Amino acid sequence: MDTVDVVNRDPNNINDHLKVAFEDVLAEPDGVHSLDCVWKLSYTCFTCWLGLTYKISTLCFGICIAAEWACEFAETAFYHIWFITPFLRMLEINCSVLKKIHETICGCCLEPCCEAFGTVFKHLGKN
C-alpha cells in the first residue's frame, strides 16, 4: 500500500495557483502603511483564521469529499475501461472497412480520370 507524504502534500504542484499566505494576499505599498501593531495583529489574525477555518472545514467535510471524488474517478475509469475504449476500438475497426471501400472507389473511379487529365495537360505543356 502507498504511504502518504504528510510533509509535501502537493508533490505535483497542482495547486500552485492557490497562494494563501498573508504576503500573497495582503500587501501595503510604500507610502501607505498602517500602524505596526495593526499590521502585526492583522498577520496573526489572518494566519490564525485561515488555519482554523481550513482545519475545521477539512475535518467536517474533507473525508466525505475525498470519498466522493474517489467514486467519481472510479466511475470515470470504469466507463473508459468498459465502454469508451471498446467503443473507440469498434469504431476504428469499422472505419477501417469504410476507409478500404473509399480507397477502392477512389482507385477505381477517380484515379483513371486524374491520370487521363494529367496526361492531357502533360502533352499540352509540351506544345
Score class of each variant (00 low, 15 high):
78 F>Y: 05
58 T>L: 11
67 A>E: 04
116 A>W: 10
96 S>K: 03
39 W>Y: 14
66 A>F: 01
73 F>H: 02
76 T>Q: 07
24 D>N: 02
94 N>A: 13
123 H>C: 02
54 Y>N: 04
75 E>M: 12
32 V>A: 05
32 V>H: 06
38 V>D: 11
2 D>P: 13
72 E>G: 10
77 A>D: 11
109 C>I: 12
80 H>W: 13
65 I>F: 07
51 G>R: 06
86 P>Y: 06
82 W>C: 14
72 E>T: 11
52 L>H: 14
124 L>I: 04
29 P>G: 10
42 S>G: 11
106 C>S: 14
54 Y>V: 08
66 A>V: 00
34 S>P: 06
105 I>T: 13
79 Y>C: 11
53 T>K: 08
35 L>A: 11
79 Y>N: 12
8 N>A: 10
1 M>V: 07
93 I>Q: 12
36 D>A: 09
114 C>L: 10
78 F>R: 08
5 D>V: 01
111 E>I: 04
55 K>Q: 14
125 G>D: 15
40 K>T: 10
112 P>N: 03
24 D>K: 00
92 E>F: 12
22 F>H: 07
24 D>E: 06
30 D>F: 07
47 T>M: 14
68 E>P: 04
117 F>S: 02
53 T>Q: 05
16 D>N: 09
97 V>R: 03
31 G>M: 01
28 E>N: 06
95 C>P: 01
86 P>D: 03
38 V>G: 08
54 Y>E: 06
40 K>D: 10
37 C>F: 11
101 I>G: 02
83 F>S: 03
63 I>N: 07
57 S>A: 14
85 T>R: 15
74 A>N: 05
2 D>R: 14
58 T>D: 08
5 D>T: 03
92 E>I: 05
18 L>F: 10
73 F>L: 05
5 D>W: 05
13 N>W: 06
37 C>V: 13
4 V>Y: 04
124 L>F: 05
96 S>H: 01
111 E>K: 15
44 T>Q: 15
108 C>Y: 15
86 P>F: 04
79 Y>S: 09
98 L>T: 13
98 L>M: 13
116 A>E: 14
124 L>R: 03
63 I>E: 06
28 E>Y: 08
20 V>W: 03
39 W>M: 14
62 G>W: 05
59 L>F: 15
9 R>N: 09
109 C>T: 07
95 C>Q: 12
43 Y>P: 00
47 T>C: 10
29 P>K: 09
2 D>Y: 14
10 D>S: 03
59 L>E: 13
38 V>I: 15
57 S>T: 15
90 M>F: 08
64 C>T: 15
43 Y>F: 14
100 K>P: 02
109 C>Y: 00
77 A>V: 06
85 T>F: 15
26 L>W: 05
39 W>E: 13
114 C>I: 11
113 C>V: 15
123 H>G: 00
122 K>T: 02
44 T>Y: 15
6 V>C: 13
75 E>S: 14
51 G>T: 01
106 C>K: 10
93 I>S: 06
20 V>T: 07
61 F>M: 10
126 K>E: 15
120 V>Q: 08
